[in-house]
């Protein structure tokens, strides 16, 4: 199957303003979804999206069709940007330990559909990074197992293992939601 982004990318490379707008409309929501859930911070997700587009503009004229799907490449780029930020957070947290415990991803509080959404966000952020990455790619970004493995630089089996462990941890963290739903 051909790459659905290839034609649009070619038009972007030739400087077509309509193609630029179309690519932003197509990829910006996916980038915000990926980075928002990887970082748990809407503001940082926007920064990642903007940085990812700067890389797209540079890459478009050099893109070689057939080497990889553009969407997979873009996910890899965005994930690297997310990991840079997660690494910086850990360095800052190590250098300056917080005096109070953060109860959740504050900047996103108004964006959740419900308390369940907030609980899910907290549980997702509590996962090890690679498990969260696997869940976000396969569940939220709708990547197939082969594409997710390519984006993560892992084997399909390794991704499946991360997914299974991640989802089991999420189920354990959210078990009271299920029990609450079952209560009369």
């Amino acid at each position: 199957m051909g790459d659905p982004d290839e034609e649009l990318l070619s038009r972007v490379a030739s400087g077509d303003p309509a193609a630029v707008r179309a690519l932003v409309a197509r990829k910006l929501p996916r980038l915000l979804s990926l980075a928002g859930r990887m970082l748990g911070d809407a503001g940082e997700a926007e920064d990642v999206a903007q940085e990812a587009f700067v890389r797209i503009w540079k890459q478009a004229p050099r893109w070689k069709p057939g080497a990889a799907r553009f969407d997979t490449w873009l996910h890899r780029v965005a994930l690297n940007l997310c990991y840079d930020r997660l690494r910086r957070r850990r360095e800052v947290a190590y250098a300056e330990p917080p005096e109070v415990v953060d109860e959740g991803p504050g900047p996103d509080r108004g964006l959740f559909a419900s308390d369940t959404g907030r609980r899910v966000a907290q549980a997702l952020m509590a996962l090890p990074d690679r498990q969260r990455e696997a869940v976000v790619l396969c569940h939220y970004q709708d990547l197939g197992n082969i594409e997710a493995a390519a984006a993560m630089g892992l084997s399909v089996e390794a991704v499946e293992s991360l997914l299974g462990r991640g989802r089991r941890a999420l189920r354990a963290a959210l078990i009271d939601l299920k029990e609450g739903r079952n209560d009369p």
Partner: peptide, 11 residues
């Protein structure tokens, strides 16, 4: 449960 966590839409 996962579906109830909506992504931010951007400013």
């Amino acid at each position: 449960a996962l579906a109830s966590y909506h992504a931010p839409g951007g400013t």
